[in-house]
Amino acid sequence: MRQNTQLAVVGGTDAEASASMRNEISTIFEEVLGRPVSIRDDTDIVEDLGMDSLGVMNFVMAIEDFYDISIPLDRIAQIQTVADLMAAVESLRAGHAA
């Protein structure tokens, strides 16, 4: 299992950090779905990627492992797009670092 120490977003700009996170998320999507995906900030995770509820759960658990966070159920319910997901991950990581 990968460790979050591999991420090492050190000293980059916000745009670089965000591009880097998008790449990481894209890789996790591909691992869970078992096929290549192309994502943008406004990609709808369920609609555009055709995920069922099990796929979403596996994907969320993989994201949680990778970033060493737990995304509470009410937060998951609010996430629709890739940008929503990135914002949630960002705020949960900030919260736990504090």
Partner: peptide, 8 residues
């Protein structure tokens, strides 16, 4: 109103 976290 608790925060709900699911484990495997």
């Amino acid at each position: 109103h608790a925060e709900v976290i699911r484990f495997r």
